[in-house]
């Protein structure tokens, strides 16, 4: 493929450097007692995870999903719903089988990923019948549909969202301590990055990228793009759903805003700001986004205008994103 061994090694190095920087920030913050910095770093890790999910579909599969907030929100709501039932000691449902609430992260994560994956399967199966600009708008519209459902379904708070006051638990850790919760999120992010790197280099990943680059040629060698893309879309949705679950626990609160199209746009921004199809792209993108939000947000209320200009500059003049700028190499197309 376009990148040489040297380029690959440099990108891996850069990925490690970015992750170390995030980790280093937290260590310094822990020593100095800046609890809020740790919360911000946790947010970076979670948003990056959501971006890693999207990057799989968008960067490697070429599927411009403008509706990933749906999976983020579903992950969040599964977490909120299970936690609130566990708090009240009631069953979520008794049909077709009894499902009790839970406040164990290890039990919640698979459920969140399963639900997000199921939604991705349905949405993907329909949306992948279209392509190009239709795909963008259809994924957007499906996410909006779930958004409005969340707003108008009163059982779990509707418009108001759902609070669950106490963070879910993880064996051996006190998740309410910021640095311990950060460790959980960071570990999951690293796992997802490793999985994503392995997936991209696997036969599946190579076929997926081949289908993105030239559909006809891929079809000629026996690759069926629809099935490939659907699988990629589902895995992508599951990872973003896991991020949603973590985000719900970070805030101990979920609301329809997690599914809004702004969220979809922001997840996309993490990926593109960092660099589409770059392993560490979402991490760099999320870090810069949160940094800008926090630094500029304090200086002026109008920081989003500056973010907009930065984004414009990236799209127009540096399509490889920040990682591309550092590595001085455009995304191989």
């Amino acid at each position: 493929m376009g990148k040489g061994v040297k380029g690959m090694a440099r990108e891996t190095l850069l990925t490690l450097a970015i992750l170390s920087a995030l980790l280093g920030t937290v260590i310094v913050a822990q020593i100095t007692g800046e609890g809020f910095v740790i919360t911000l770093a946790t947010k970076v890790a979670i948003f990056a995870l959501a971006g890693v999910g999207l990057n799989l579909a968008l960067g490697y599969g070429g599927l411009v999903s403008f509706g990933h907030a749906a999976f983020f929100g579903i992950g969040g709501y599964v977490t909120g719903i299970l936690a609130s039932h566990a708090g009240a000691g009631t069953a979520v449902t008794t049909l077709p089988f009894a499902l009790m609430g839970s406040n164990e992260m290890l039990g919640i994560w698979p459920m969140a990923m399963l639900a997000a994956g199921a939604a991705a399967l349905l949405i993907g199966a329909l949306s992948l019948r279209t392509s190009g600009v239709y795909f963008i708008m259809v994924t957007l519209a499906f996410a909006q549909m779930l958004f409005y459902f969340a707003i108008s379904w009163p059982r779990y708070g509707g418009e108001d969202g759902l609070s669950f006051y106490v963070r879910n638990s993880f064996p051996g850790l006190n998740t309410l301590v910021p640095v311990q919760y950060f460790a959980i999120c960071m570990a999951l992010l690293v796992l997802a990055l490793i999985l994503s790197a392995a997936l991209v280099r696997s036969r599946f990943g190579l076929a997926l990228q081949a289908a993105r680059q030239n559909e006809q040629r891929a079809a000629a060698v026996g690759i069926r793009p629809y099935a490939l893309r659907l699988v990629a879309f589902v895995i992508s949705g599951m990872i973003t759903g896991l991020a949603g679950s973590l985000y719900a626990d970070l805030n101990r609160f979920v609301s329809p805003a997690m599914m809004s199209w702004h969220m979809s746009g922001e997840i996309m921004v993490f990926v593109i700001l960092g660099g589409v199809g770059r392993l560490a792209g979402p991490v760099a993108g999320a870090a810069v986004f949160i940094l800008l939000e926090h630094l500029l947000g304090g200086v002026s209320e109008y920081w989003k205008a500056l973010l907009g200009l930065l984004l414009l500059a990236i799209v127009l003049f540096a399509p490889g994103g920040l990682i591309g700028l550092v590595l001085r190499r455009d995304r191989h197309v």
Binding site: F36, T39, G161, N251, F253, S255, A257, M258
Partner: peptide, 16 residues
């Protein structure tokens, strides 16, 4: 007027 924003501001005010 957004609950999610309010939650995050409260976290910031308490922690930071």
């Amino acid at each position: 007027q957004k609950p999610d924003v309010a939650v995050q501001i409260a976290d910031k005010m308490i922690q930071s």
